[in-house]
């Protein structure tokens, strides 16, 4: 707006001159770049540079006596792709992540819905309980689960006292244990993101469906659920990504026997000292994560196109 007025003023200032008004040099607007520079710098230094370095490291080779050698090759990648041990670890990682995501959606979405319908004092209290896991250090929280899960732990003793089981269930060093502990940690993310999409839901819409003769279950399935799909999806993305790259919980509950990608990378770095292989595992985990998440996102967005508009 200001620029166009300026040109008009210039043009009228020299009406006698036959020559076209001189072209003014285009002014560069530096302010937006300057203002976003700190954020961009942080992003670059803390994310892009380490990622690039990890990728470069994954191309190096490692020998037991010679250490890391500065050569550029894809040997680590072919090793992992060829070895069924790594296949098992990656498969387990994504199996755990998928089950945790599913459980979080199954528990988290109804939880968010119930929370939203609660009255004022209880709502805050229950929200605090739901978000509680996020307030405790991941290590102490996981050690707590380890205490509960042991063969003489509270869960097994309780189930045996109730006569539901005869022998203790193996929770420690099993996928079941890792999945339960991870679900507990990650459910808040699902609750929060479903909560956000519930905020956009017109409460009268449920009444409208009721008035048209729909039972409460039909209202849920046909009216509420389709509208909170975006929330469940974004929650699932967060939960899946965090579950697939979780370290502390699988390390403590799963231990050495039950390796996932994150603990595998850790062991390659710190025990075997094979940094390039560890870096390769990390890079592959990142790529697989991105591919799976983007793929699922596309699928769901196409299915519920109208809700995302």
């Amino acid at each position: 707006m200001a620029a166009s007025t300026d040109t008009q003023v210039q043009a009228s200032a020299a009406p006698s001159a036959a020559a076209p008004p001189p072209r003014r040099p285009r002014r560069r607007h530096w302010a937006p770049y300057l203002l976003s520079a700190p954020g961009l710098a942080l992003f670059a230094v803390l994310l892009l540079v380490p990622l690039a370095m990890t990728f470069l490291l994954s191309l190096n080779s490692f020998s037991f006596y010679g250490g890391i050698e500065n050569v550029w090759q894809l040997g680590n990648y072919t090793d992992i792709i060829a070895d069924s041990y790594f296949h098992e670890v990656f498969l387990r990682t994504f199996r755990i992540a998928a089950v945790v995501t599913l459980l979080c959606a199954v528990f988290g979405a109804p939880e968010a819905y119930i929370l939203r319908r609660m009255k004022s004092p209880w709502r805050g209290l229950c929200l605090l309980i739901v978000l509680g896991p996020l307030l405790i250090s991941v290590v102490s929280r996981t050690l707590g689960w380890a205490l509960l899960f042991g063969s003489t732990g509270l869960v097994n003793q309780g189930l045996m006292a109730l006569g539901l089981i005869a022998t203790p269930i193996e929770f420690m060093y099993t996928e079941t244990g890792v999945i339960i502990a991870l679900t507990h940690v990650l459910v808040p993310f699902m609750v929060l993101s479903v909560w956000a999409s519930l905020q956009r839901l017109d409460p009268q819409v449920e009444n409208a469906a009721l008035s048209l003769g729909a039972g409460p279950l039909t209202v849920m399935r046909r009216v509420v659920l389709p509208q909170i799909v975006p929330g469940i999806l974004s929650g699932s993305i967060i939960v899946f990504a965090l579950a697939a790259s979780a370290f502390a919980t699988p390390a403590i509950i799963g231990g050495r026997r039950l390796k996932v990608a994150a603990t595998l990378a850790y062991d390659e770095f710190l025990n075997t000292l094979n940094w390039p292989l560890g870096a390769t595992v990390a890079v592959l985990l990142l790529i697989a994560n991105v591919v799976i998440i983007v793929g699922c996102n596309r699928l769901v967005e196409r299915r519920y196109k109208q809700v995302f508009e």
């Binding site: 017109d202 009268q204 819409v205 009444n207 409208a208 469906a209 009721l210 008035s211 048209l212 003769g213 729909a214 039972g215 409460p216 046909r222 009216v223 389709p226 509208q227 519920y304 109208q306 809700v307």
Partner: peptide
Amino acid sequence: PNERGLGIVFQSYALFPH
């Protein structure tokens, strides 16, 4: 409410957006 068979037009319309 779902057995009353009444028609209701809401202030916010309350249409099903999906």
